[in-house]
Amino acid sequence: MATIDLDRHLAAIQQGDADAFARWLAGAEQPLRRSLRAFATEVDGEAVLQETLLRVWQVAPRCTPDDKPNGLLRLGLRIARNLAIDHLRRHRACHVELTEGDAPAVEPTLPDDELRAAIARCRDQLPDRPSAALAARIDNRAADPDRTLAERLGMKLNTFLQNITRARRLLADCLRRNGIELDPEAS
């Protein structure tokens, strides 16, 4: 399978094109998130990832392409690792053992058409309340905490969280019945 080179968006990103950065993000997020696995018990990977992505956007104009693909992603992987280590040094004395198996793969990932079609069908089959909770999270785009989203839906926080968990499980079960396994180890 040919490697996706996300650097095709680099020139536009360097010109401040946020839409181009969005296209880069669509392929870069998963490998960046996976690269933080070694730190999972010590740092909140979601917070570190969001800060990483902002820094990538800020330093992208100074990124000089080399003869390998995905130079900006490789830069992002270094930023993510350094931010995670910085958090460890500032907040914790513990030591994270980085093994060979923790070396991040520089392989962008994009949702495939089969997954898109199956998940659309499965989402339509969700019961009302899990569907509403899931939609609230997705449509809100991380602007508000769950407590606020729950109040808008007239749910208690715990009920909202149970519906989020139920929606995820039902989607995974439905996808599995369609022959799609959402293994965290797989792309």
Partner: peptide, 29 residues
């Protein structure tokens, strides 16, 4: 960590531009 990987894959597959809530949060900023 494992659930975030799976959940963001689901979100990306549900989004017309293949973006997760993480990506949208960052783009918002």
């Amino acid at each position: 960590h494992e659930q975030l990987i799976v959940q963001r894959r689901l979100e990306a597959a549900l989004d017309p531009d293949g973006l997760t809530t993480t990506a949208h949060a960052v783009l918002h900023r």
